[in-house]
């Protein structure tokens, strides 16, 4: 698994330092209603203080999927799905689908969909059947890579077709969602900066952006 960046790994001028937080808090602390807000902000400031002058780190991901046992797919289908997701979003210098438990998340949603959202359940059953019919389950790593390449072709060539293209799109859509809503995707890969206490909003400071 790729290494999770620490605050010190990130050069950051947009997120507030402890000094920013304290200055702002001092200016507004006398206001009624402020204490609850600033207790949260101070908690953030303490976190920043403990990690030097870097940004406030995003919280860890809850352990829901760490030890999750698939309940929707059987072992063979789950293994195929997990392999497929890792081809789509591989682990490289940043985490991939396996690190983000994408297949586990898909299974988690689908097991909760049984009896509630049957059209979705049916679509996924059909997708895995389609994948099996295309030979994905039985193929080795190289064969699987070749298959996914063929299945994805209609994305780039609108005249191309593949019987498992719909399955490819379904798995890609949900894997994309699972990955980029995970901590591995949104924080470690994309370095998303919101959903935190920030001292200021970073204005554009690029002269080249002031003309078109």
């Amino acid at each position: 698994m790729a290494k999770t960046p620490t605050p010190a790994d990130v050069v950051d001028r947009d997120l507030p330092t402890r000094r920013d937080l304290l200055q702002m808090a001092a200016a507004a602390m006398a206001l009624p209603g402020a204490p609850r807000f600033f207790s949260a902000w101070f908690a953030s400031a303490r976190t920043v203080g403990q990690s030097g002058m870097g940004p406030m780190p995003a919280p860890p991901e809850p352990p829901l999927l760490d030890h999750y046992t698939p309940a929707f797919f059987d072992a063979e289908d789950f293994a195929a799905l997990e392999a497929f997701t890792e081809i789509l979003i591989p682990t490289d210098d940043t985490p991939g689908a396996r690190d983000a438990h994408c297949a586990h998340f898909i299974d988690f949603v689908l097991q909760a969909s049984v009896g509630v959202d049957e059209p979705t359940v049916t679509r996924w059953r059909a997708a895995l059947r389609s994948l099996r019919a295309a030979g994905f389950h039985a193929a080795d790593a190289s064969g699987r890579a070749t298959l996914v390449e063929a299945m994805s072709l209609p994305e780039r060539d609108r005249t191309a077709t593949h019987p498992a293209y719909a399955a490819y799109r379904l798995i890609k859509q949900q894997t994309t969602f699972a990955f980029y809503t995970s901590r591995a995707g949104i924080i470690e890969n994309l370095d998303y900066r919101g959903a935190r206490f920030n001292g200021s909003f970073p204005a554009c400071e690029h002269p080249e952006h002031h003309r078109v």
Binding site: L110, T120, R123, T161, F177
Partner: peptide
């Protein structure tokens, strides 16, 4: 936008192609 996968595709509900948004 991308083609959804034709008549055998999976339009519609959450988790399906091309409607899968956060």
């Amino acid at each position: 936008s991308l083609p959804t996968g034709g008549p055998v595709g999976f339009p519609g509900a959450p988790g399906s192609p091309d409607t899968n948004t956060a």
